[in-house]
Design a protein around this nucleic acid. Structure first.
Lengths: 201, 201, 201, 201
DNA sequence: TATGAATGAGGGTTCATTCAT
DNA sequence: CATGAATGAACCCTCATTCAT
């Protein structure tokens, strides 16, 4: 790789890292572009070379971070010998919740974007340095499953929303239920939701 | 009531109304205090007599509007002869969803505050010109119910989160499922969640 | 007048004065709003209380300054006992040219606006603290004149353009003819132009 | 010609063309060097190899374009059999006005540089790929003329200024007189100005 | 010669907040 | 209580210019 190209990539990386840190620490509203470039140690103009504005870099980060999270969850899943589709979903749910719980900044950041609307795009965008994205992974898991499900997209949506929304509350506020207890409640609720979508022959 | 006190109340009212309209129309980030006082037709300084800042007035509005919404739902419920607790919850859910669907600005506004954390405070605060609040109403309904529920607070939390989060997505984006269809899915999911919390003797 | 109103007027006045000085000294392109408010000794925000941008204040200054100039010329004319319309025009022309020659900054400033397009608006706008504007004055002079003119508006246009354009060149560059000599040439040319528009009965 | 030299010429040409197009389309103030190099498809640094700044390229363009215009007018004149000096001047005037009217961008661009000061330099600079310039052409025409003129430089100055200034107003604003009508008025005025400078023996 | 990534000063503009009236 | 003119810090963003390649 040419040296200039390398430098360029490095600047972008630095900007992404600095933004992420600031967004998770102090929120996007209170983070100015001046803050970002100062932390990234690049000139102000450089920011505008690669990003349109604060929200542009935010979206890129969201896509990046969420996809990364799900891929890591999927990789961890592959290390296990879980076979049932329902159990796989619960595993992923717990993995993601644990990761978020370890990194509260990340929770604050993806917060209300850990919801379907923005999320979907992230999930459908190809994961860096790999040919897959979570959507495909999900569909592949469905195919392999012995138990079949109707309206599987809506089912996923319901799961993501309830897990995302409740997870946020428990992780950030420990209210109305502490994190570890929430996981049990969510597991039961998610299983009961999934049950409804099973196709019985 | 003294005339000055009356005037004072009127100014506050005007500020609240103007804020609400602007917040729902253009979002809180893009609404300035100048915008608010201009629309409310009061002087800039007057704003600071009654509110600390934009976020202060926002919180007061959230509490006000959400409580109002649930009280209206409850009043509507009383006009019916629904007896079962589960059916009552579904009724309220549908009522609230319909109201939000009619007023998308309101959805945008309460958006991610239609979640437990902020919401709880709203629900516990007494409703203007009435002695009740939604929390009490909920507990009263529980007491009257023949079917008993364990962990009823957590159950309510799960319901509110899933309804709030999914409702938002369906109302604003019609994605991944249009509003009317979502209601069926949610009804089934909520019922199945509630089933788990039933105490069987 | 209330004290606040007085203060307000004073700030506007200061901004106008500072702008004029800077525009004439260093040109409008090289004058920033920062420069203006610094010279006017007001806060930056104050500028935006009264003007939209640099060009807004420029237009207001042009209208103000040009009208002022013509009114002074007209007042000077009234001190004389010149009777003929043609002689009056020449008098005004010479008066304006002399004034511009005394104040080269003003010439630079009104420069390319000392032309019909922008000028017309200035001439038609009422002069501060007086009921008249130059357009009316011109028409009144025409009416009183024994000699009548056809296409008098176009005639005025031709005169203003030739005087403005040539005056600029002579005053700023002394080229191709020094100022005092130019006046003779212009006088002859203007008279010959006017002759063509005389209505002979 | 060496290949590098050829490339160089081509880059300069491209920069000039791009600048001209942008200046006439959106004005010089709103045109940035980034715009120019992007349109010219050369690198930013390349601009600075050949031009000092925006105003440098502007001046070169003005000289180029105006001279070109007058040369084309002169060439057209030579296609006719007009003999009288006065008629020749009127012919050139009309030719230039028509050209400008066809290309309003050009009018905006040369605008107030279609006046003596800047213009003179353009007229005196040799026309590319030809040994002549307009100044020489004018003097040659004078010599051949039967009618002789005093102060011929000043006379030319007056003509250029009145035609340039009035032409601008009529072409851009159609005010106070539409283009075609203006030409008649200008013709009469220019002829009457010229009459004064005739030397009668 | 030619490049174009990087710079950072400085432009315009907004707006929460104050305070004399 | 109520006002609204004034503030000025802080924002976003542009762009002429440089310089290592």
């Amino acid at each position: 790789m040419k040296k200039t190209t390398y430098n360029k990539k490095q600047k972008i990386e630095k900007l992404l890292d600095a933004s992420f840190e600031l967004f998770t620490q102090q929120g996007i509203n209170k983070t100015s572009i001046s803050d970002i470039v100062e932390k990234a140690e690049v000139a102000k103009g450089t920011f505008y070379l690669y990003f349109k504005d604060k929200y542009d870099i935010k979206n890129k980060l969201i896509a990046h971070k969420t996809n990364q999270l799900f891929v890591r969850a999927y990789e961890a899943l592959n290390e296990t010998d879980i076979e049932m589709f329902e159990d796989k979903i619960i595993f992923i749910m717990n993995y993601v919740l644990d990761e978020l719980n370890k990194n509260k900044g990340l929770v604050m950041f993806v917060h209300k974007d850990l919801s379907w609307a923005v999320f979907r795009k992230a999930l459908e965008s190809p994961i860096e340095n790999s040919g897959v994205n979570f959507k495909e992974v999900y569909e592949e898991m469905l195919e392999k499953s012995k138990v079949k499900y109707k309206d599987s997209a809506i089912m996923l949506f319901l799961i993501i929303e309830i897990v995302g929304a409740c997870g946020y509350s428990a992780i950030i506020y420990e209210d109305p239920v502490p994190f570890e207890k929430l996981k049990n409640h969510l597991e039961n609720s998610v299983r009961s939701i999934m049950k409804q979508y099973e196709i019985k022959d």
